[in-house]
Design a protein around this nucleic acid. Structure first.
Lengths: 318, 318
DNA sequence: TTGTATGCGTTATCAG
DNA sequence: CTGATAACGCATACAA
């Protein structure tokens, strides 16, 4: 069913039908009713593709997600959807971008071919992104000042808050970390280290990039007897450390204390529950969507948005 | 950058450029190279929207997901993406459809306006779905024989397998359940009940539809002293029961045993770990995507696909 | 082997 | 208030 057929059935021109669909221009009430009836009877809906071609506006937003198995990202998506729900936009999504810059670029190109009005992507590196003409917002990004809109968690505050979980008796901590060359990781890490130095807490590092969670946990537990606390990458890794600890007879927080990050659902279902930093993923998603829509609507502001974090004390620290 | 501009720069017609882009028709090697160079230099990509309008094929698949906070659905999406990755399709997604039939219909209409080639949706009810012309596949559906392709977990086997977790000493169980008028819920439930009857195990029901997880758990624990085991709705509800049990001084599996469903990540991170039925969500997603693409490619078979389930014994039963 | 012309479904311009 | 028509970017039928 096309606008042409409706016009024919109604005995008017396509222009008139178009006017009625879009509430544009003047139409006699009588013909409006007549045509609207035909539209309803035939359950006609305008073809969005043809509209997009003409208007050069698709009402589609493209979203790139690195990994859906981490509930942190699910929450971000829910935040995005929460904002999008009140608009006329649809969401086109690519999952599993991982941390492969090439995949991000491929996805963005594909989105551009579909004439998306804007893109929300998790952060990736390379100069390519600065050349993108399509309105774009990066979430889960470090607070980098350039010409693109970044939604950054307050990683500096996050690193600092971690140390709040470490009580006076803690002298030596083990820090589990991902690739320190990643800007977000570095932001949080540097802030944490600065705080530890201030308090004369010593630390060792254990890199877990590319390791399975189980393997990562085992590396942590190998020398755990020399440490008072473990600062893990996030709640997922923390949960796994709890699991492996149980299998190996370690008690948390008695034998060592444990700090997570993100405040995903997991944090409240483990035993002990995980002391963690809430990044407010839902808010990140909402901010990303709002900023993008703003940008699409012509707002040229490219300042970053920093989402505050909150410390959430649970049972894994004392 | 459009095909017209490329044609002009190359000194050929748009038809020739089109032939080169699509590897269709005969083109002299010399002109092919010349034009391809111009295409590459200008980083030209054909406009997918215009293509869709002409070809009436969008290479977009629409996906409807009820609730992203349940990792069961995340896994299904990952399965879908796994198949889609090797194709030329993009994914348009609507989350948070919940169990509101109207929302499903709205989303489907929107997808149709975008000329999606097919739709993968979780099951919903109403006769509307049988009238949809767009190729459609329903996942997380009961095994209903009609003209639409359904990907169903083997709910009957699932219900039966649950009882395998119940040892000889178990005489009375508490069954937590959602709306029994939902076909999938009923399938599993009836199979479970039949099995319990066979074994002379008595049971009580506790409906939790619409309740918060916490509230649902509390209802379970109220009279728990009269029961030997709890069969919960899924791992999410089971995890919450574990949490509330701990707060209320109950020990699992000593005080009562507990069975989950789905085998989401949660099941292995709680203490005790949850005995559960693995629905193989990833396989469900893969099957849904495969069947849909098949259907789009012209396969008229509307038989359902039944995905087998597996029992996974963990610590919450003995 | 290449080019011309047409149409996909819609909206906007312009004339009546 | 209404209609005829061009244009959006592309792919194909038909001519050359």
């Amino acid at each position: 069913m096309t606008i042409k057929e409706i016009a024919k059935l109604a005995g008017v021109s396509t222009a008139t039908v178009s006017r009625i669909i879009n509430n544009s221009g003047k139409v006699k009430e009588e013909t409006r009713i007549k045509v609207q009836n035909i539209i309803d009877q035939n359950n006609y809906r305008p073809n969005q593709v043809a509209r997009t071609l003409f208007k050069k506006k698709s009402n589609i937003i493209g979203i790139i997600v690195p990994d859906l198995s981490n509930m942190f990202y699910s929450k971000i998506i829910e935040g995005i959807q929460n904002i999008i729900d009140n608009t006329n936009y649809s969401l086109m999504i690519s999952f599993s971008a991982g941390s492969d810059d090439k995949k991000y670029i491929d996805f963005i190109r594909k989105f551009q071919q579909e004439n998306v009005d804007g893109i929300i992507t998790s952060a990736f590196s390379g100069e390519y992104v600065t050349k993108i003409k399509t309105p774009i917002v990066m979430y889960d990004s470090a607070n980098i000042e350039d010409n693109i809109i970044r939604i950054a968690s307050d990683n500096k505050a996050g690193g600092k808050l971690i140390s709040k979980f470490l009580n006076k008796n803690i002298k030596k901590v083990l820090i589990q970390h991902l690739d320190l060359s990643l800007p977000t990781v570095a932001e949080r890490f540097n802030s944490l280290i600065a705080e530890l130095n201030k308090r004369d807490i010593t630390y060792n590092l254990v890199a877990v990039e590319g390791l399975s969670k189980k393997h990562a946990s085992q590396k942590v537990l190998e020398n755990i007897k020399h440490f008072d606390a473990v600062i893990s990458v996030n709640d997922e890794y923390a949960a796994d450390i709890i699991k492996e600890s149980r299998l190996n007879g370690f008690k948390i927080p008695e034998d060592f204390q444990l700090v997570g990050y993100d405040n995903t659902n997991l944090a409240q279902y483990t035993d002990p529950t995980i002391s963690t930093i809430d990044q407010q993923a839902f808010e990140i998603g909402k901010a990303a969507a709002r900023r993008l829509i703003d940008r699409i609507d012509g707002n040229k502001n490219t300042e970053n948005t920093i989402i505050p974090v909150k410390a959430l004390k649970n049972e894994s620290t004392k």
